[in-house]
Write a protein that binds this DNA or RNA. Structure first.
Lengths: 180, 180
DNA sequence: CCACAAGCGGAATAGCCATTCCGCTTCGTT
DNA sequence: AACGAAGCGGAATGGCTATTCCGCTTGTGG
């Protein structure tokens, strides 16, 4: 790979990460290319399509999240591990609009984000099961409820216009609802 | 107004209500005109723009909701009034995609839906205050939390693909979280 | 039954954006 | 330094959809 090509790829990734985090999937390809200081052709040489670019960026976020969830699983206190993994997930969501979009959006063709999703889900599932065994999670709440539990906070964060309501308070409310 | 024009207006309103409830704001003007069996020109003679049409339909829904909330305010049991108004709101949301969109969507130019919104909000605010006085609502929860509380269930309903999770269960969870 | 205003349909217009294409430029090798 | 391949920019293309426009049709009052 030529050195200028590698440089451009980095510039594009930086621009994509930043703009997508700030403004979500609605940024146009042209804006991303401009922010990176390259032409559209170069953008398309680096990503097969817009969807593929979004998927790349979302996959990176999931990677971070998977590592974080792994650490949460090691936390001794089952209740704290549970709280931490929810909070970490939502913190990333707060920082990244395209991640929220991926979590909330209709089933687009998220390329192979599914694999990462499954890894993360595995961690969460084990953490929740451990919580149930330890008696810090109501036993009618299972991993199947995870989307429902976070979707609420996620959506409030994503959609409430104006001054964002305090999502940590919302999370606290949710945690209270699922404790015995 | 000519008789055929009145007939067409009815057909258009029916089609708009039905398609918007089923498929939300993404239906095209052409699809609505076709479903009503009229041309685009006729559609635009009845609504100034797509936004205006959406606003008309959403306003109708709010009207229903306002009457319902009024009845909830009259319910003797403060806790039941509270539960009922949340449930009624969410039931309408379940039945109408464009209403969900209006509740979740970014601040579009919702024409004068704001007035209706304010009336509904007035009812809910009084119901919540009564709940707090009666001791069936935690006193750190106020009307300002209403969007947060319903947004969660709303979003889960709107976005979870595939078999809809049971929103009544989610609501029950939320109600539990806000009770003392 | 007539005249004509009110209404109608749907082709044309316009803006937006993802994606493609190709003639030009730059890198790196010899 | 020179050349060919790799890479580049950005104009052109294509599809989608809201909105406008205008020549044709139809309801209705006289």
């Amino acid at each position: 790979m030529r050195s200028d090509a590698r440089r451009n790829r980095e510039k594009l990734l930086d621009a994509a990460r930043r703009l997508l985090a700030e403004r979500g999937h609605e940024v146009s390809m042209e804006q991303i290319a401009a922010a990176a200081g390259v032409g559209l052709g170069t953008l398309y040489r680096n990503f097969d399509s817009k969807q593929a670019m979004l998927a790349d960026v979302v996959r990176e976020r999931y990677q971070t999240l998977i590592e974080f969830a792994g650490r949460c699983e090691q936390i001794d206190d089952a209740a704290e591990g549970l709280r931490a993994v929810f909070e970490g997930y939502l913190q990333i969501a707060e920082d990244d609009a395209v991640f929220r979009y991926a979590m909330l959006g209709e089933e687009l063709d998220w390329h192979d984000v599914g694999e990462h999703k499954a890894l993360f889900a595995g961690h969460v599932e084990r953490i929740m099961r451990r919580g149930a065994s330890a008696g810090v999670l109501r036993d009618d709440i299972t991993f199947a409820d995870f989307p429902m539990l976070v979707c609420g906070v996620l959506a409030t964060m994503h959609y409430q216009p104006g001054p964002r309501p305090d999502w940590r308070r919302h999370l606290a409310l949710t945690m209270r609802a699922i404790m015995p």
